[in-house]
Design a binder for these strands. Sequence first.
DNA 1: TCCGCTGTTGAACACTCGTATAACAAGCTC
DNA 2: GAGCTTGTTATACGAGTGTTCAACAGCGGA
Lengths: 202, 202
Amino acid sequence: MNARASFVRDPDARRLALIEACAHGLAARGARGVSVRTICADAGVSPGLLRHYFAGIDDLIAATYRHVGGRVSAASAAAVAAAGPSPQARLHAYITASFRPPIASADLLATWLAFWSLVKTDPAIAALHADLYAGYRRELEALLLAAGVAPHDAGLAAVAVTALVDGLWLELSLESGAFSAEEAGSIAARWVATWLPSGLVN
Amino acid sequence: MNARASFVRDPDARRLALIEACAHGLAARGARGVSVRTICADAGVSPGLLRHYFAGIDDLIAATYRHVGGRVSAASAAAVAAAGPSPQARLHAYITASFRPPIASADLLATWLAFWSLVKTDPAIAALHADLYAGYRRELEALLLAAGVAPHDAGLAAVAVTALVDGLWLELSLESGAFSAEEAGSIAARWVATWLPSGLVN
DNA sequence: TCCGCTGTTGAACACTCGTATAACAAGCTC
DNA sequence: GAGCTTGTTATACGAGTGTTCAACAGCGGA
């Protein structure tokens, strides 16, 4: 047995451990608090290994964005799938999923903030972000159309609903004291109702 | 004339120069990209001077938050004051100010993201944030009440309107391609209308 | 005129940063 | 079993980090 004892784990598991340590570090210590060394220590790995899997720390952060973004997508999709066939119920499920774990979470927010702050600087992150958000909007637009929103309104409605949901999610995750997830859900439902043909607003 | 030539400027101007260099650095390079040296170089000042005015870099960042937050408040207040006496016009002015410079701006967003990312980690920033947002909400609530929102709805309405405005502001400043400031204004107006007694929604 | 105060500098300190690299361990193929 | 590839480590390097400090410039008051 050597002091340099090493044992090869599943490479994908190592990669994932680094990604999750990055997300955890971002959540716990903020964008200014993560470094190659803290991430690798969190993942139980030597600092040199990061560069074996990623081009650098920025690349790891981008990979973390992709991973966390995918988990959010999956959580939304699961909520929609569990809601049954009614288009209104599916739409409602999609929206309220944002106000409950794992999406509404201080940790996820902290991670997300780090991503947003890189959008302006890092073109790769900017492209990733545009892709991810286009996907979210397309998905929401489809749900809105299925629920009965007029086709010529669907684009604007998707923007409007996304904005409200993002804002509620942000404040819920940032302070989590001013209002509850239930209140957020009913506020969002009220907003969606104004875009539906049965809504009482023109 | 000495190599160490120094000339005493207005101390307040120096302090302000440091704060503005900090904001500029945050906007240009994000929370991970600012350091004592880059800030002081930006301000045209020796690195030792930062500690003469601030307890440390975290203290400078907090002071920058206070300063930038104050500027946002001032911009909103100016928009309201310019709107004339009608409560509805004042409310509308307050809201649409968020979709125009200097509030809607990629630089301000980048700075703001850096602050948000510190809320979870730094208690001083967290307290500052809570103060600032309570102020914003109180101001909006007063405008909503004056515009005719029912008193028992005003708190929830303030949360709801703040969330939509924040979300629209965020996406407008982050991507600035998906929709226009005018569209954001009309979306927000539609949302506000549902909280007014003349609104057609219950 | 000297004194002390405030503003300011630049160098130095002890650290941490991201990255590079030589060494090694374990499996795979031939 | 030799040789190659891949995963992993520990260490080293140069740059950059936040902070400290002795020195000094210029002003105001005694």
